Amino acid sequence: MPPPHPPELRRRAVELARRGDISLLRLAKELGISRSCLRTWLKRDAAEARSGAGDRPAREVGKELAELRGRNRRLETENDVLRRAVELALGERSPKVVYSLIRKLADGRVPVAVACRLLRVSTSGYYDWLGRPEPPRALRDKELTEMIRRIHADSDGTYGSPRVYAKLRSDLGEEVSRKRVERLMREAGLRGAHGSPSSAARARPGPRPSA
């Protein structure tokens, strides 16, 4: 069996999840744990809070939160350093080298659109290099649909097109129109909590019968 996760990782994961800055799926990936594991920790933390087992002195809690915030700042700084290091390392490389890296990232289930944006190359250029016959717009629709499915699944099927669109823009930084999100959700058969795939897909009145 794999070794148990350290308690500090669990506390940090729960705190970040409660803040709600990013989705549970993305947070779990960044922490190297499964989403089901993160959900279990959240449920356990809520149960401890209800039973009073999680009560601790305010000073201890405040100290722990300060430490977690410090770690989060360090992680952000480290991520920034790594991002700049990648830019410097690949800045003089040919596009083919960058495209090869993107293909390896895609094999590891990293969205191609996200990898292309971070490495500052175009998705159309990547797909041209890859030699796929599908047009860039169709391939872009596939990439967006995959992201939409993940966001929708992470919300337990409650998010409609407005909230999925907001997540794509805020969490993933995707430049996409709301109408395109509505269309892709409709084509994928994804609906929000109220049973509507998108605001644009609401039932429209049919033609009036002729007299």
Rank of each mutant, 00 (worst) to 15 (best):
R18E: 14
G173H: 10
A211V: 05
C116M: 06
P6Y: 00
V114G: 02
I102E: 00
G32C: 09
D141H: 09
L31T: 14
A13N: 07
R35H: 04
P207S: 12
V176W: 06
R44N: 09
R19V: 06
G20T: 03
L139A: 11
K96S: 10
A201V: 01
T123I: 03
R56P: 06
I22T: 11
R26F: 01
R26V: 12
E134H: 12
Y127T: 06
A115T: 07
R137M: 08
S177Q: 08
R11Y: 11
E175W: 12
I148D: 01
E87S: 14
T145F: 01
S198K: 02
V164Q: 00
V81K: 09
V110E: 03
K142A: 14
R84E: 14
E143P: 04
L42A: 06
G131S: 08
S177I: 05
L75C: 14
E30H: 09
V110R: 11
V121Y: 04
V86H: 04
S177K: 08
R39Q: 09
V121D: 01
A66N: 07
E143N: 13
P135K: 06
A58M: 04
L38R: 00
Y126N: 05
E134T: 07
E175H: 14
G160T: 03
L105T: 13
A166N: 11
R84G: 10
N79Q: 15
V81F: 10
A66H: 04
G62I: 00
P95R: 09
G52W: 00
L38H: 01
R132S: 10
A17V: 10
P111A: 07
A211W: 13
L68C: 13
L139Q: 12
E175Q: 14
R71Q: 15
P136H: 12
A47F: 00
P4T: 14
A66K: 03
R140L: 11
R10D: 01
A58G: 05
A66L: 10
S124A: 14
V181L: 01
T123C: 12
I22N: 07
T77W: 14
P7W: 00
Y99I: 08
L88D: 05
S36D: 09
R74F: 13
D156I: 02
S36F: 01
V181G: 03
L88Q: 06
E175P: 06
T158C: 06
N72K: 14
C116F: 05
E146D: 13
L25Q: 11
D55Y: 06
G157Q: 08
V110S: 01
R208D: 11
Y127E: 07
A89L: 15
L31S: 05
P197R: 09
T158G: 05
W129K: 03
R56S: 06
R84W: 15
Y126C: 07
E78L: 15
M185W: 00
R137K: 11
K43D: 11
E87F: 12
V97W: 10
G32N: 07
L27I: 08
A113Q: 09
A200G: 05
Y126Q: 06
A58R: 05
A17E: 09
E48S: 08
R103K: 13
A193F: 02
M147A: 12
W41N: 07
I151Q: 03
G192R: 02
V14Q: 04
D107H: 08
R59N: 00
A85Y: 11
G131P: 13
L139G: 08
R132G: 07
P3C: 01
L27H: 04
K63F: 06
D128K: 11
R74H: 12
S198H: 01
G54F: 03
